[in-house]
Amino acid sequence: MDLEVPEGGFLLVHGEAGAGKTLLMAMAGLALRPGAGRLQLFGLDPWGASRQGRARLRRRLGLVFQDLSLIDDMTVAENAALPMRIAGIRPEVLRRDVGELLTWMGLAGKAAARPGDLNHDERQRLAVARAVAGRPEILLADEPVGWMGPEAAARVLRLLLQLNRQGMTLVMASRNPDLAPAPQKLELVRGRPRPEAQA
């Protein structure tokens, strides 16, 4: 596979369950090291960098995992605010931005709840909120609306597309090839791209 996603681009990776979408996203998000080939982020080789260098690169990424990876001991607001807190955003800005984001996601009334108090739809919306809260340069979203109802999914997709139009690079994985109007698409079949789908 030879694939390049330009700065500010939007790539939709699609294919059936087991095709390799989650594996590809995990490698792009630096959760897994590729066994062969070369991966570059921001023109850099993350695996040739120090641990601190990789950590700096990760802070430029927003990640939505299929398993959501929420922190159960934190409130909804604290989960959403985590990337901003790590980035050193001032508390008053953090509270304002997280409040607006939770309102957009339909979670404003759940700010003091814990992730375990939410249904799966709400947990998925919280995972997306956390991923975009720090305004990452690249958002890697693995099935970001897979468990949401139609109204919530449409709302979340509008937000992601708006952020993409504002310059955030968006890489989204989904079983649905028509999930969003991506200018760049890649279909995976058993871990390999279809020849006509290479980009």
Rank of each mutant, 00 (worst) to 15 (best):
M168C: 10
A197L: 09
Q40K: 14
A133S: 08
K185H: 01
I89T: 13
T22P: 13
G99Q: 04
N79V: 05
Q52L: 12
I89Q: 06
P46R: 11
P150M: 14
A19T: 03
E4M: 00
R114S: 08
S50L: 06
H14K: 08
L139E: 12
A17P: 12
K185N: 11
L163M: 14
R59D: 07
E137W: 06
E78K: 03
L101R: 04
G62N: 09
M172R: 07
L160S: 00
A111H: 01
L170A: 12
G15P: 02
G9V: 05
A80T: 07
R51Q: 12
R59S: 09
L82H: 01
E137R: 12
G35K: 12
N119S: 06
L63A: 07
V98F: 09
M148Y: 13
G37L: 14
W104C: 00
E151H: 10
V145W: 02
E78D: 15
L160C: 01
R135Q: 10
P144N: 12
R60P: 04
N164R: 15
A28N: 05
V98P: 00
P181T: 07
L161C: 03
M168A: 07
S69N: 12
Q124C: 07
L44F: 02
L186P: 05
P34D: 08
A80P: 08
V171H: 05
G99F: 06
A129W: 00
E4C: 04
M1N: 06
E151T: 07
L41Q: 10
L163I: 12
A199S: 06
M25P: 08
V76I: 14
L101I: 08
A55Q: 13
G62M: 11
V93E: 15
R165W: 07
A182H: 08
D67C: 06
A108S: 04
A112V: 09
R51C: 05
L94R: 14
L170N: 10
D178N: 13
D121F: 01
A17M: 15
G99N: 03
L102D: 00
L30N: 06
R114Q: 01
